[in-house]
């Protein structure tokens, strides 16, 4: 009986650990290390806006049939209002992402980041990450 209880308890703990590890990132709270954003056939970053803490990583996944980019580089923007970087932050660019590809970026400087998809910037595919200071 004791062995069964131990087995059940172990299985439960393992399940909790797996779920906690695999759970999608939670925005705004900064509870999870990795925040997930998808890129769609309707030319959107989903969610289009998110808030994280310094040190968190964002993973973009291209869930569409199209090729997209995650680009936060003022030199590559067609319109200046589509891009923003806090002072001291380095520009970043995923390059072309085929369907199902992922790209990760860890934010180390607090502030507002506006980014875009190079091929679809003009069609409104822009996003924003607000990075809060570490707690």
């Amino acid at each position: 009986m004791k062995k069964i209880a131990l087995f059940v308890l172990s299985a439960l703990m393992l399940w909790v650990a797996v779920v906690a590890f695999a759970a999608p990132g939670k925005s705004k709270t900064g509870h999870s290390k990795v925040v997930h954003i998808t890129m769609t056939n309707t030319l959107k970053f989903n969610p289009a806006s998110d808030t994280i803490r310094v040190g968190q990583t964002v993973e973009w996944r291209n869930t569409s049939l199209l090729v997209h980019t995650v680009t936060c580089d003022p030199k590559k923007a067609a319109k200046p209002e589509h891009v923003a970087l806090p002072e001291g932050a380095e520009p970043f660019d995923s390059g072309n992402m085929d369907p199902d590809a992922t790209f990760r970026h860890t934010f180390t400087v607090p502030g507002v980041y506006k980014y875009f998809c190079i091929p679809h910037e003009a069609a409104g595919m822009v996003g924003e990450i607000v990075v809060l200071p570490a707690k």
Binding site: T42, L43, A78, K79, P119, E121, A122, A123, G124
Partner: peptide, 20 residues
């Protein structure tokens, strides 16, 4: 040059993006 706008709507002349 790029002639689509927000939501992939077909733009007018004023909406053209010359650098895409």
């Amino acid at each position: 040059e790029y002639v689509r706008t927000e939501g992939y709507k077909l733009g007018f002349d004023k909406d053209v993006t010359p650098t895409r």
